[in-house]
Amino acid sequence: MTDLLKEVHLGQDQIDEALMGCLADAANGHLDACAICQQRVTAARQPIEDFKSVTMAWSERRSATMPTNLPTRLLESSSRQRRLVWGAAVTALLAVMIAAPLELHYGDGHAGREDSAELGASRAVGSTGVVSGQQSTDEQIARDNQLLNEIDLELNSSSENPATLGLQAVPGRRAAHVVAISAEQD
């Protein structure tokens, strides 16, 4: 049987199978015992081995020219991407948190002006806090100025005015509370 196998050498397909690593057992037995077939398989493998060694030499050289800080850059880019995603998510959340109360506030104030004159007057102070492009009209500015003037008058006429307490301005002194302290000391 062994002599018979030795006489019938491997065919081209069987040499391919030997290279692929899936040669049948019987043919494998022949290959183990036949120097001619071993030589043929080696010869068939040689160009592939040459290609392998040449391309590996090329790849090692090419790989050596690639950035040496590759791992750091990879990780940095990865963490940067993660930071960007988280940043975008937090920004979106903050935008919603800010926009929702403003929307409620704006809607509430807008309705208040339509309800009645009394309610409109009482909410005038609140509505000045919301300044949009549409609201920043001359009328709005005039209303704000009037409101500021009223506040100024109210402050000037209050009992905490130093003049109402009998305090006088000291030449060369600017701060009212300093004047008050000196008056108390006197």
Binding site: P47, I48, D50, F51, S53, V54, T55, A57, R61
Partner: peptide, 28 residues
Amino acid sequence: VTEAASFLPSNECSPETRMLVRERAQQV
């Protein structure tokens, strides 16, 4: 690959062998 073959260590084979290796690698 012709250029790549020049990266093979020169002490491992003769110029003739290198040429042969280069040719076979090019064919593959």
